[in-house]
Simulated scan of single mutants.
Amino acid sequence: MTAETAVPAVTSFAALHHRPGEPLLLPNAWDHASAAVLAARGFSAIGTTSLAVAAAVGLPDGEAATREHTLRLALTLGSEPYLLSVDAEDGFSDDPGEVAELAHELWAVGAVGINLEDGLGPTARHAAKIAAVKAAVPGLFVNARTDTYWLGDGVETDTLRRLDAYRQAGADGVFVPGLTDPGRIADVVRCVDAPLNVLYSPAGPAVPQLADLGVRRISLGSLLYRRALGAALDAVANIAAGRVPGGTTPSYDEVCALERSVSARASANSTG
């Protein structure tokens, strides 16, 4: 990302969180091809998913094992013509300075957003990470995640206390995965002065209802990756049973074209 393009890109990404009644639907990719096909469908902003990054290399998710793999994926995707937000688990460190260094590296390769989760650890520690990131890279959109519903009992007072602390530390948006009850979503929207991000659940409210509740960002998390794995299993089962597999199947040439476009841009950048 160049100095000339950084500010407009970040401004437009933040603006996507401030459209009443029109939340940002953020699909999460796991490699260049998945991001490219999503961008081709019209998504101007794309996130990454830590589960897929970890699973692709046989490492555990959520255990700070994939810092370099996350950076490598951001380097691959950061120069593409869409806005990139990176799922960075808890920043891969308890040291706020090290998390800020990671954020700066992500910014340098073109990311405009970062997702940082607290894992139900100390509120003050997570707030310190957020503050350090915003001090080091003020333009990076920090989406502060609390796991009170994802890993805990979903106590609303604890959720609101954590979100308020993260907002005070400088978070641009807040994220509560596992929050699906419409009444509780509305409560968080009303009580927190920041765009609320929820994780889409097939068993929860649909996108139009989430929009009506005031949600400003809807992430798909690892859902698309897990669906892709499921589609592969369904396809091989159908083939083994003598049936033609259904669903959308890009052609060999279409997939190759995605990579040729990267090579062409890289060549143009190296000669330009």
Rank of each mutant, 00 (worst) to 15 (best):
V142N: 03
N143M: 05
N143Q: 09
R145Q: 10
R145Y: 05
T146H: 14
T148G: 05
W150E: 15
W150D: 13
W150F: 14
L151P: 03
D153W: 06
D153Q: 12
G154A: 06
G154P: 01
E156I: 09
D158P: 00
D158W: 06
T159H: 01
T159V: 02
R161I: 01
R161C: 01
D164S: 10
A165K: 01
Y166L: 04
R167A: 05
A169F: 00
A171I: 04
A171E: 04
D172F: 12
V174P: 00
V174C: 02
V174Y: 04
F175T: 06
F175P: 01
F175D: 02
G178W: 15
G178V: 10
L179Q: 07
T180H: 12
D181T: 05
D181F: 06
P182C: 03
P182L: 02
P182A: 02
P182N: 02
G183N: 03
G183M: 01
R184Q: 04
R184S: 01
R184I: 05
I185F: 10
I185E: 09
A186K: 11
A186T: 09
D187M: 12
D187T: 15
V188L: 10
V188Q: 08
R190I: 05
C191T: 12
D193S: 00
P195D: 03
P195N: 04
L196Y: 03
L196N: 00
L196I: 04
Y200A: 12
S201C: 11
S201W: 14
P202M: 07
P202K: 06
P205E: 03
A206M: 14
V207P: 15
P208I: 14
P208G: 10
Q209L: 13
L210P: 00
L210M: 04
A211I: 04
G214T: 15
V215Q: 03
R217F: 06
I218Q: 07
I218E: 15
I218C: 11
S219F: 15
L220V: 12
S222K: 02
L224R: 02
L224F: 08
Y225M: 06
R227L: 08
R227F: 12
L229T: 14
A231W: 14
A231I: 14
A232F: 13
A232N: 08
D234A: 08
D234P: 08
D234N: 10
A235N: 05
V236S: 01
V236Y: 01
A237P: 04
A237E: 14
A240C: 01
A241H: 06
A241K: 05
G242H: 06
G242N: 06
V244G: 03
V244T: 14
G246W: 13
G247N: 11
T248Q: 12
T249V: 09
P250S: 05
S251N: 14
Y252E: 13
V255W: 05
V255L: 12
E259M: 09
E259V: 07
R260T: 15
R260E: 15
R260I: 15
S263T: 12
S263L: 11
S263Q: 13
